[in-house]
């Protein structure tokens, strides 16, 4: 499993957004200019190919979010090109919108059979084409998400516990190999059951989702935020020293405490954090890391909640950060 997970890009969020681009394969420069300008309004970059050969190359090198393909190309039929795009693993995932003057149903059917996502007849209406491009990119995003679904928590969009287990093992192995620091935090929303009981479960869900968003905003791009259980979250912080991890968790803690909630102006939600770091020889496997972080979380809760505790191996328990520094 570590081999598999190590190939996954390290990201706090499972579906990273990157600059959207659309590849247009059409021999008419007028169409390129027009589409380029119209797509700029949607913050989408246009990659231009005038021939099929160029289109194939750019589809591979640019990995566009969508491809718009004119059926009538010099030297190559759009259908042939579509077939080649869909049989190449490097280009097969990009949704293709066929663009053509042909209204023939058999052409449309053929395009869909060959794997086209959509079909637009020329002369096209620019707003319609833009809407269809948006639709094609949305489908692509959803498909991408589906592929990751087994590793994603449905309610928050964070990684789920299955992913966390794989990732923690991989990061521990990485730490042992490279000697780079590593920190693990487990955090739990304080008195969440009371919140659910008094304000209702739908509002509880809002709080969990709000906290997940806050985590994503506060963490670095290579940190990994997971929903560990109901109102419990785990944060893997690669290359973070104990001090850095403490600072990150405390910042999250303070931001949450200061946050206001819709329809509940007086509500203050807090969380407790338990930290484990790599300064301990005994921590060689994921179970020992999780136990250490859990014990720190327990001691943070026992000490009054809304605080970050760190694990102390001599005590076999968590304690405040300040005393560690002394």
């Amino acid at each position: 499993m570590p081999e598999q997970t190590s190939s996954v890009t390290m990201n706090a969020t499972p579906a990273p957004e990157r600059q959207q681009s659309v590849l247009l394969i059409d021999p008419a420069p007028e169409v390129h200019r027009m589409l380029s300008m119209r797509l700029r309004e949607d913050d989408i970059a246009l990659v231009a190919a005038m021939t099929g050969e160029e289109g194939l190359e750019l589809a591979e090198s640019h990995q566009p979010s969508a491809i718009i393909l004119e059926l009538h190309l010099p030297r190559m039929s759009g259908f042939d090109l579509l077939r080649r795009l869909k049989s190449n693993p490097a280009t097969m995932h990009a949704p293709v919108i066929m663009l053509t003057a042909s209204e023939k149903a058999e052409d449309k059917v053929r395009a869909f059979e060959l794997g086209a996502t959509d079909y637009v007849c020329k002369p096209f209406n620019m707003s319609e084409l833009r809407a269809r491009i948006g639709g094609a990119m949305r489908i692509r995003r959803l498909l991408h998400l589906l592929e990751q679904r087994a590793q994603i928590d449905g309610m928050t969009g964070l990684w789920n516990r299955a992913y966390f287990n794989d990732k923690l093992a991989a990061e521990i192995a990485h730490m042992q190999r490279t000697g780079e620091p590593l920190a693990l935090a487990i955090c739990d929303l304080d008195k969440f059951k009371h919140l659910n009981d008094t304000l209702g479960h739908p509002f509880g869900d809002v709080v969990i989702q709000g906290f997940a968003q806050l985590l994503l905003r506060q963490l670095r791009s290579y940190d990994v935020a997971c929903r560990y259980g109901g109102e419990e979250f785990a944060l893997i912080l690669p290359s973070a020293t104990l001090e850095e991890a403490f600072a990150a968790c405390d910042r999250i803690r303070r931001t949450l405490e200061a946050r206001t909630w819709p329809g509940q102006p007086d509500l203050v939600v807090t969380a407790s954090f338990g930290l484990a770091d790599c300064g301990l020889d005994s921590m060689t496997n994921p179970a020992s890391w999780i136990e250490a972080a859990d014990r720190s979380l327990y001691s943070a809760k026992e000490s009054g909640r809304n605080r970050v505790h760190v694990f102390d191996a001599r005590l076999g328990a968590g304690r405040e950060m300040k005393r560690m520094a002394a």
Binding site: P27, A28, E70
Partner: peptide, 26 residues
């Protein structure tokens, strides 16, 4: 090919009559 391109571009640039005429020619 040229008629086809004019048909596509014409309406795209707001000249529907060009598209229609180019379509007839095509």
């Amino acid at each position: 090919r040229i008629a086809h391109q004019l048909k596509g571009a014409g309406a795209g640039y707001g000249f529907a009559p060009i598209s229609e005429a180019a379509s007839d020619l095509e």
